[in-house]
């Protein structure tokens, strides 16, 4: 890989001073970045190590649950507060990557990880995300893992995270620090669709830093489930995943949260399907209706046509699990 400078600024403020220049990359767990550097996909001049910053805490706040950006995926997945307040997040985290990777990967890094599209990683292949204007290798290529929602002719890659699917479903908020202070972005608006600029994965302003996420309190603990359908039972990206959480009273759905992974350039929240479920009986029939509605606008590209069948089946299956019907 290209030789690079490695710095470890002492404070968050000092980090913000450094990352404001082109050619810098923040490194936390490095589970994705180092691969990208080895493959020549990215070649930063300077790596800014932030692992020592005090951003690892997981605390209960009046508004909800606060998780620092540097909290490790493994720590979050086994944290008592998380298990108690947001079990869906714990379940999603545990289905991601492998124990070894979760022990290195941070929450902020998980959000910043890049697509696993094979064309993106191979510098001999065209990829608009890697080299804008070079074309999308997957569009007419091998696209079994690719998007069925929100894609563009420029890019049909998917975001690979499981954690993010749960956070999108749970109305989390991303807390971002810049030189002018902190600001908050709804999780569902953090990642973006490819459009004409697939090189940009998310709306994190240049030179700013994710410091944490906050998940508002809810009544979804009892009936939540993260279903991940994949080619092997661990260390595999989702063909389709579903984060489902329900608030059920006397068999009637009071509140619902649904999001999908493995289907779009960002965690794919299913707002319309949620609305449909509210007031309905927690039954397979309701779940199938929601799943059908969720599939509106879906489009496949050849190898991933099976997702048009797998996705609704998975939504129904996840909701059945969440409702305790399995």
């Amino acid at each position: 890989m290209k030789q690079f400078q490695y710095v470890q600024p002492a404070t968050q403020q000092a980090v913000l001073e450094v990352i404001n220049k082109p050619g810098t990359k923040i490194i936390a767990g490095g589970t994705n970045l180092v691969d990208l550097m080895k493959r020549g996909v990215t070649a930063p001049d300077k790596l800014v190590d932030i692992n020592h910053l005090p951003l690892k805490h997981i605390t209960s706040t009046p508004k909800g649950l606060y998780i620092g950006a540097l909290a490790l995926n493994s720590v979050v997945s086994e944290n008592k507060l998380v298990a108690e307040k947001q079990p869906l997040l714990a379940m999603a985290l545990k289905s991601g990557a492998s124990p070894q990777l979760r022990n290195m990967a941070s929450v902020g890094g998980n959000m910043m990880q890049r697509t696993r599209c094979g064309y993106f990683y191979d510098t001999a292949m065209p990829c608009n995300k890697r080299v804008p204007g070079s074309g999308c290798g997957a569009y007419e290529g091998v696209n079994r893992m690719h998007a069925i929602f929100g894609a563009s002719s420029q890019c049909i890659a998917v975001h690979p995270s499981d954690m993010c699917v749960a956070l999108a479903a749970l109305d989390a908020v991303v807390i971002i620090a810049g030189k002018k202070g902190e600001h908050r972005v709804p999780f569902t608006e953090f990642h973006r669709l490819p459009g004409d600029h697939p090189e940009t994965d998310n709306n994190l302003p240049f030179g700013e830093l994710i410091v944490g996420v906050e998940i508002p309190n809810n009544n979804l603990q009892k009936n939540s489930y993260y279903l991940k359908v994949r080619d092997r039972q661990s260390y595999a990206f989702a063909l389709v995943s579903v984060a489902a959480a329900l608030d059920i009273e006397n068999g009637i759905i009071q509140n619902a949260r649904l999001a999908m992974g493995g289907v779009a350039h960002k965690p794919w929240r299913l707002f319309d399907a949620e609305k449909l479920l509210i007031g309905k009986k927690a039954s397979e029939e309701s779940f199938q209706q929601a799943a059908q509605l969720a599939m509106q606008g879906a489009k496949a590209y050849g190898h991933n046509s099976f997702k048009l069948k797998l996705a609704p089946a998975s939504i129904t299956e996840a909701l059945k699990h969440a409702a305790g019907l399995v």
């Binding site: 094979g118 191979d122 001999a124 292949m125 290798g137 290529g141 091998v142």
Partner: peptide, 8 residues
């Protein structure tokens, strides 16, 4: 990917 004859 048969267009390129390259493993993906």
């Amino acid at each position: 990917d048969h267009r390129y004859g390259r493993y993906i």
